[in-house]
Design a protein around this nucleic acid. Sequence first.
RNA 1: GUGGGUAUAGCUUAGCUGGUUAAAGCGCCAGUUUGUGGCACUGGAGAGCGUCGGUUCGAAUCCGAUUACCCACCCCA
Length: 430
Amino acid sequence: MRSIIKAQRGVRDILPKDSYKWRFIEDVARNLSASFGFKEIRTPVFESTELFERSVGDETDVVQKEMYTFLDKGKRSITLRPEGTAGVVRSVIENSVFGGALPLKLFYINSFYRYEKPQAGRYREFYQFGAEVFGPESPQADAEVILFISSFFDELGIKNLALKINSIGCTLCRERYSVALKGYFSTAGDLCEHCAQRLHRNPFRILDCKDEKCRNASRDAPVITEFLCKECVDHFDLLKSYLDSLKISYIVDPRAVRGLDYYTKTVFEFVDTFSRGQNSVCGGGRYDNLTEQMGGPKLPALGFAVGMERLLLMMEQQNLEIQKPQDCDIYIANAAEEFKLTTMKLSFILRVFGKINCEYDISDKNLRSQVRHADKLGARFLLVIGQKEKDSGFGIVKNMKTKETLKVPLFPDDDFLKAARNIILAHLAQ
RNA sequence: GUGGGUAUAGCUUAGCUGGUUAAAGCGCCAGUUUGUGGCACUGGAGAGCGUCGGUUCGAAUCCGAUUACCCACCCCA
């Protein structure tokens, strides 16, 4: 059996066998966000193409070749969001959210879209948990954001992560550095085709290139650190001292440059030290000029994003089991057809008034099959309704695991509910 | 965008150098004398071998193209 219509390349369904894992991680993210004082923001899946061109940067790979861009029926150029910051910044400006209490701390768990070739830990539709802070200039905010993510990883029990940090300076530092790099690379030897072109547009990127030639060429390249202004140096030093006192270990990687144009000063990345594939699970940094550049007020800001698919992948690799939720507390079986309505009614009482996960047969199974099904569902308890129960007004609730049985009244409704609930609560309390 | 690998029932696979109605395990459904599961036994449903085209008397098995998946590069989370 094969359906004619298949899911599109690079996207996938998250089925019940996995969805509870997502739910678990999202819950951790939400709860921790609350602890750190971050409020949820939900922005649209699509925005004007221009938003991303102007914020992410039209020289970047993301904008140049990875966006899902199309014209809508009104001939507007629309793009499915390839990342989260642009939309949040747009929303903050548009809704004047900065008019409230600063710093403004926002988080999101959203899907993003990038037209790339699918690979391990990489899909065309992917999810990120991200957060943004608007307002603070202080490096303490940088430390706070890093502490936030690092706590998130800790809570999930993830090991083998390395934090890489760097400062890529403010506009002035970058300008001076860019000039120096261009000078250096024009005499440093052969570059790959890509980088030869990038030399004038975006020389920073050459440092990141994995091509043999480029790596050789950039071996003795000047590093950004030498070009940072006093303010940027102080900022970075303070951040490092904060991280030290927070006991968060890090590696200063002067080569680290982010792929999106809006970053300034602090940039950081968490990488999985155990895999050499798509090992970047979290990236972020400061973007002090973006809000103003997009037409808003001068508002320093910073943020990060964690890739959910990669996170899940890592957890799997590290054998971090996520507890599967209990699906069925009690299964009410009918011994014969004429008791179907009673099972239905009793289930309704437990489900609606007792908030108990309860199942009963809706597919005309015989008793044996019903019990078998209850077992498959992993039901904790079983109650069979038949002539005896109807006559006596009492039912036997059986613990599927221990096979212990307990007598419960079937009516009045309140007595039934109370008895059933007590049994289940007592079981949960163990 | 570049390079490599794979493609058979829901899942995991067997099908050797082409030859009658494509096989197994798991899973699923049901039954094993009439009201209680996980075991065992029995039976059942379920693929025409990714798709298109070619070679051949004949192809799941050979060739080509295409699509999808996996992996790596690029880039990113």
